[in-house]
Amino acid sequence: MSLTNRNYFEFFSLPKSFQVDADTLEREYKKLQTEYHPDKFADASDSERVQVLQHASLINDAYDTVKSPLKRAAYLLRLENIDPEEHNQSHLQEAFLLKQIELREDLEMLTAKKDLDGLEKMKGSVTSDRNTMLQNFEVCYLASELIEAKSLYNSLQFLFKLVDEIEAAEEKLLDY
């Protein structure tokens, strides 16, 4: 089987969509890994090994992409010939950007106060905003409102990063 001319969803026998059946993804990923892992080719020729290495890398990248909602969103846009990173944040609504600045200030303040509960609460609310936005992305994507979908993707980038930062701040406070 050649992997090179397929989209990442096809690797895992999944339809090209924002909804992903996690069980199918896991099952098919394991199947592919079993087939293409370099360990299965420990005795093969060098050129074969190079090819297998590329295949296995591609499979891992496909899995990461399909599994992560953010990467999946970007990938779907790319498949529609939209560059998700183009002029990325400049076109976002001012209200959204102001809100982001505000949230970041909150994060700094909670960190300075070593307020773990506050951080946990903040994480809850940002995560829920993020989930709503993911649903909105799917709606736009299905309706082929790709410009709006792209704008949602760029907003989502902010929210995913913010959640990471909140977690990093929590980790620091807990002294992991």
Partner: peptide, 8 residues
């Protein structure tokens, strides 16, 4: 913690 092999 990205699964290897991987290429980027």
């Amino acid at each position: 913690n990205t699964t290897i092999p991987v290429s980027r």
